[in-house]
């Protein structure tokens, strides 16, 4: 299975995911992984108590799988794993974990970088930050869009 993806409503344990991913290796020289954690403050600096990641069952999973398959096809990599949370997330919890194996490190780094740029803009989520000062729906930032634009020639690019 070159591209494995999972949407996780419960907690996500990056160390467990990484250990399992490493166990599946067979002769490749590189594994790159990335863990995204929930920040305890909004962009404006206000404390955020929970992050709500709204998702469309079936559609969201398909969007993540498509991104993972694009990464697997675009770089010289072995396995690609994406585990993404949905629902209610609390500060410092893991939101996303990606891991990529490859014969050499450059491809693994690049594929992980690509996965995150795509997930941050193209994954079918809607996110809301809830805190004492109110609730706000968040859209991709200019920075997210600029990061996404580093990888041209994708079917999914808008």
């Amino acid at each position: 299975m070159p591209a494995t993806t999972r949407l996780e409503a419960g907690p996500l344990f990056p160390e467990v995911e990484l250990a399992r991913f490493l166990q599946g290796r067979d002769g490749e020289g590189a594994v790159a992984s990335f863990t995204g954690l929930m920040r305890p403050t909004s962009k404006a600096g206000d404390p955020v108590e929970t992050l709500e990641l709204d998702w469309y069952p079936g559609v969201t999973e398909a969007s993540i799988q498509a991104i993972a398959e694009d990464a697997a096809g675009r770089f010289e990599v072995g396995d690609v794993l994406v585990v993404h949370r949905c629902g209610t997330i609390r500060p410092r919890e893991a939101i996303v974990f990606v891991a990529v194996s490859a014969r050499h490190r450059r491809s693994a780094f690049e594929a992980a970088d690509y996965l995150m740029d795509r997930l941050k803009t193209d994954a079918a989520f809607w996110k809301r930050e809830d805190g004492a000062t109110g609730s706000a729906w968040i859209e991709p930032t200019e920075r997210d869009r600029a990061d996404r634009a580093r990888w041209p020639n994708d079917e999914h690019q808008e």
Binding site: G36, K120, D122, A123, A124, F125, W126, W137, P140, D144
Partner: peptide, 10 residues
């Protein structure tokens, strides 16, 4: 039939 704002990404 679903209605939704643009995706925010993860």
């Amino acid at each position: 039939i679903a209605f939704f704002p643009p995706f925010s990404g993860g």
